[in-house]
Design a protein around this nucleic acid. Sequence first.
RNA 1: GGGCCCAUAGCUCAGUCAGGCAGAGCGACUGGCUUUUAACCAGUCGGCCUAGGGUUCAAAUCCCUAUGGGCCCGCCA
Length: 532
Amino acid sequence: MTEITHWADVVAEEATTKNKKNVISTGITPSGHIHIGNMREVLTADAVYCALKNKGEEPDFFYIADNYDPLRKVYPFLKEEDYAQHVGKPISEIPCPCGQHKSYADHFLEPFIAAMETLGIHPEVKRTDELYKAGKFVDAIKTALKNRDAIAKILEEVSGKEVQEDWSPFNPICEGCKRINSAKVTGFDEAEETVSYDCPACGTSGKVSMTGGGKLTWRVEWPAKWKILGVTAEPFGKDHASSGGSYDSGIRISREIFNNEPPLPIVYEWIMLGEKGAMSSSSGVVVSISDMLDVVPPEALRFLIMKTRPEKHIKFDPGQPLLNLVDEYERLRDKEEPSEFEKRIVSLSQSKDVKQSKIPFKQMVTIYQVAGGDLDKIDAIAKRSGFDEDPEIINLMAHNVGLWLDKYAPSFAKFGVKDTVPVQAASLTNTQRAFLKAFADELLAADKELGPEDIQRIVYETKEPASPISKKMEEYAGGEIPAEEIDTKNFFSAIYTALLGQPSGPKAGWFLTSFDNSFLVVRFKEAAEYRP
RNA sequence: GGGCCCAUAGCUCAGUCAGGCAGAGCGACUGGCUUUUAACCAGUCGGCCUAGGGUUCAAAUCCCUAUGGGCCCGCCA
């Protein structure tokens, strides 16, 4: 097979042949909960950024928070009476829903920035309101206003939509009602760097500065940002990519108005949530990124994005398939002789700032439930199972697993170790009772720590009449045990019944090593005597 | 109406840029570890690469067309 090049390296290759220095940019409007789909954008950008660095480049990586955009409407998660008055105002200028953040925008932005940290993504974060307020857009605003007609013509040609007579590439913030989407531009003064307007909504007329007095409309602002930041590559969702969409118009505005070459587009597909369809804030199909990071180890989430080409749909299902995803990642990470391509995916999934426990997620699912979620017990079990790790890292994964079990795990993956002998123990047969007693003796008699294989072996030795456990069973049963009852299935079942109150569970040897030996001895003896 | 993306094993997908033996993981099945349980190891099964045409010595790959699915063209990635 010919060597496969990872998509991020393909993009990086193309970028380096086109540009001497590359600037990756990405931007999201923090108008609502930022979800896992948005994370694809920054992770896609991060992949290309890493690939460029691996090629010896020194690229820049910006994350632009479009917090100067207006609040479009009162979203379902907002209170009508609180936010109706703020519709149309820039989200950087309206109050935070919880009162803990500087602004509405920061309320959603801050958790997202924290999530990027968790995932090992470190772009230079810029807020659009700060760029405007610092005057970075002044030149672009002047250029746009002077070329208003040419831009309007491009927009009409590209999008096929008629541009309104009173359209302007600049949206002033009305000083009367503070809205950014209602005032009509009536003129501008290039030397004074001001724009004058009439606001039909509140009747105000006035003059605002090009520095912080308003913003360019999206289709013009995007190419302006390319020029101002020198963007050479940018991932964006397919909504911008369609013909007549904002990338199309952006190309022409960039070249014809700003005299600047547009960035290399990296179009990515949407993440579908299970069977529910596309992730979308408005339809309510949404898993916020913090919800996701509560459950998925960061490297596994990176892995999901890295292994899939951007233009492919990703089906994300936080139930059983999530377990498989994490498992797949762990297997690949720990693979002895991975291919170059596999190594590449793993290395892009890792980040030096992100640590993930070596304990397989699946095993943690068992450990966690054995320990009943108690962190000290989990640490102890992990040690006993041979994982010598920083408790902090173990606890992080335990936290993930606990929430996963609580929120998404399918019922067959769940079990609970009963605090006392479960009532189901009443149904144990005499042979099973004899087995439990004999088994407890074996555990007690063990002169060393029993490993998973040892435990499995002891159970299977019941089939051998000469084995110590068989002899003890006969003793306890008070006579010879009928051959048809010597069935390991019976015995495993007894073990699960005594601990869980159900006839099956995680592979016994590995399951039992998660427990303290003396606890098992007591429990098995009790269960063997249990009569309601 | 205009456009974009996707379609490869039961499932999830690599492989398409740059044409050269049809691939991986999971699942299933079989076996191994003195051993039916959600661990481990080895192996097997599994595909008209959605369909039809074209280019080529050679096509999953490039070019047309069709079908199915997803989506965009009102500032939701």
